[in-house]
């Protein structure tokens, strides 16, 4: 059985919104350590994954490993019935094909309960090699979203060039080209407020060409986190990570494009 109580529905809503256009259905894997998910899109170009650690829930009970097959369109519709500040209780009783979601309003005067039919999904798991990236960029997630949105008006792909001085995003299309350079920045802005910081750690300069359609899809996770971390290695998939407060993360992997 599973019983997991999440203090704010907004977290689950944002996670589902940031995955549902990439993956139509997948298993949520539940264990003592938390709830995780991994699935590729139909074309095997992008992989989405998330982890919500058990300590992000209060309480969290899962006494054996479970794979719960979820259709994201259904989950998304049902989560729209929850207020952002509602508490969400996720419940699964052994040997059933139903997942229950209970939404409790903050004043406790409204309690809604929805049951979702679970699917039997055989999933393939990809083992992702643990390797230190040649370059790790941390930047404002809002800035990253803006760059992806701006450059898709020019072309279908972006070349990301990371050097010690900063990160350059360039795109070329039939009608022209454009580029945006983000320099490593200080942590304090003119008003003395902490501003989102861009940091670049690298062992090698990296250049990757990537599909902007997918990157724009990934930026749907930007509302979850002020920062995005990009792990990049030449000729390897990009890994993008958005932290989910301090309880977990969403990660996306995107295969690069190569010149003939």
């Amino acid at each position: 059985m599973l019983e997991a109580r999440l203090p704010a529905a907004s977290i689950l809503k944002k996670i589902v919104e940031s995955i549902k256009d990439l993956v139509s259905q997948a298993n949520f894997d539940c264990s003592e350590s938390g709830i995780s998910f991994q699935a590729m899109d139909e074309s095997n170009i992008a992989l989405s994954s998330f982890l919500l650690r058990a300590d992000g829930f209060d309480p969290y009970r899962c006494d054996r490993k479970l794979s719960l097959g979820i259709r994201f369109a259904t989950l998304s519709k049902i989560l729209k019935c929850a207020g952002n500040d509602d508490v969400v209780v996720i419940r699964y009783a052994d040997d059933t094909d139903i997942l229950s979601l209970v939404f409790e309003a903050p004043d406790n005067n409204r309690i809604s309960e929805f049951d979702i039919k679970l699917l039997d999904i055989s999933s393939e798991y990809l083992s992702i090699p643990e390797q230190e990236p040649e370059c790790k960029v941390k930047m404002s997630s809002a800035e990253f979203s803006r760059i992806c949105r701006d450059l898709i008006t020019i072309g279908s792909s972006v070349v990301i060039d990371a050097t010690k001085s900063g990160v350059k995003f360039s795109s070329t299309g039939d009608d022209g080209s454009g580029s945006i350079l983000i320099k490593q920045s200080a942590s304090v802005d003119g008003d003395g407020k902490a501003a989102p910081q861009t940091t670049v750690e690298m062992s090698e300069p990296v250049s990757l060409e990537l599909s902007l359609k997918y990157l724009n899809n990934f930026t749907k996770a930007a509302p979850l986190s002020e920062y995005v971390v990009m792990n990049m290695t030449n000729d390897s998939p990009l890994m993008l990570q958005f932290d989910v407060s301090d309880i977990g993360y969403i990660r996306y992997f995107l295969a690069p494009q190569i010149k003939d």
Binding site: N44, L126, P129
Partner: peptide, 14 residues
């Protein structure tokens, strides 16, 4: 001309 690779080129099935 650029070619889009897939993740199967990099990650193995478990």
């Amino acid at each position: 001309m650029t070619n889009q690779l897939t993740l199967n080129n990099f990650f193995s099935n478990n």
